[in-house]
Design a protein around this nucleic acid. Structure first.
Lengths: 174, 174
DNA sequence: TTATTATAGTAGGCATACCTATTATTTGCA
DNA sequence: TGCAAATAATAGGTATGCCTACTATAATAA
């Protein structure tokens, strides 16, 4: 095994480790709040953008609309969000928080990526910038081989496809 | 937003991006080989360790035994692996590749993390070491808040718990 | 104005990944 | 020996996350 491949294996191992830890993190959040990580994250995004329709919400979460559909289903049975069919465009469903959902968001503001952020915040900026640079590098490497759509907003991200086209993004697609 | 929190947001965004890309990667592999990423990875590990029992296999994959159980089920219906009940210890099931499975492993040797590795391999070692360092840093940060068991072998990893205890690791656990 | 095309959301299906039982076995202790 | 504790695997359940239809509605083109 070359020196290089050792490092590569190491990187991949560490990546897996990060996945694992983030996953556990999510479990922990679940225990604390009764909601899973994705659910909490979803609620937060809804809170900041309500009313929001499913497609755009999915876009904001970098998830597939059907995935978000499921999450919304579960949040709805918990009475944390509600759906309203739009009158202007009857295909559209507006999603917003219920009172219950709103109070939950307030009480659990940063839990979603909480510890994650907390951990990072303890590092000196210099260190963070290092990590940031490396992450960007990783993204560049991985992403170079396959960079989907191309996005809007500050954070353009790898979006799962299904050519969204909301009020805010009127682009074209294959 | 402070300078720091911008960087942090950035890191997290990039992390998500990496997840996304790896996920797509897996999809691509699936298209190429007919097997999902985890399935291919599993087969590879079996190939290198056969015969192997489920618990230890799970340990090697950093996954929960029940998760691996499901993967093995699916591989078994595809006739790529077979299970044999051990005679010495009838609780144990030995898992190994069928002829078909073996030939598949040969024909798709590195696909699992293929592109991933390919991408990394194009980088100069220096660059890789940077990334490596940052990843380790990330792991340290995340892991510090919650480090499960503690592992053996070269690559000690965040193992999902269920206090494994195989022939090779005779430790204790809470 | 009608027919085609596009869009929004839902339904159903599959694979991962987890957890909590439960069933066999085996081990270890009294 | 003989019963309790530990272990290996499986069963069943839930949540993510994707995909491929499919339905309803809207927009566009002929």
């Amino acid at each position: 095994m070359t020196d290089k491949s050792v490092v590569i294996t190491d990187i991949i191992d560490n990546l897996r480790r990060v996945f694992q830890i983030l996953n556990e993190q999510s479990k922990k959040v679940e225990k604390d709040t009764g909601l899973t990580g994705p659910q909490l994250w979803t609620i937060k995004v809804i809170n900041e953008n309500a009313p929001i329709n499913l497609s755009y919400l999915a876009y904001r979460l970098y998830l597939h609309p059907t995935t978000v559909g499921g999450i919304i289903d579960r949040l709805e049975t918990r009475h944390l969000v509600k759906r309203t069919r739009s009158k202007e465009d009857r295909r559209v469903v507006w999603i917003e928080l219920t009172a219950e959902g709103k109070s939950l968001v307030k009480s659990a503001p940063e839990v979603a990526q909480g510890l994650l952020v907390a951990g990072l915040e303890e590092l000196p900026v210099l260190n963070l910038k290092d990590i940031d640079k490396s992450m960007k590098n990783l993204v560049k490497i991985f992403g170079a081989q396959k960079t989907p759509p191309k996005l809007i907003r500050s954070t353009e991200i790898n979006y799962p496809l299904r050519k969204i086209k909301t009020e805010r993004s009127k682009g074209s697609k294959t």
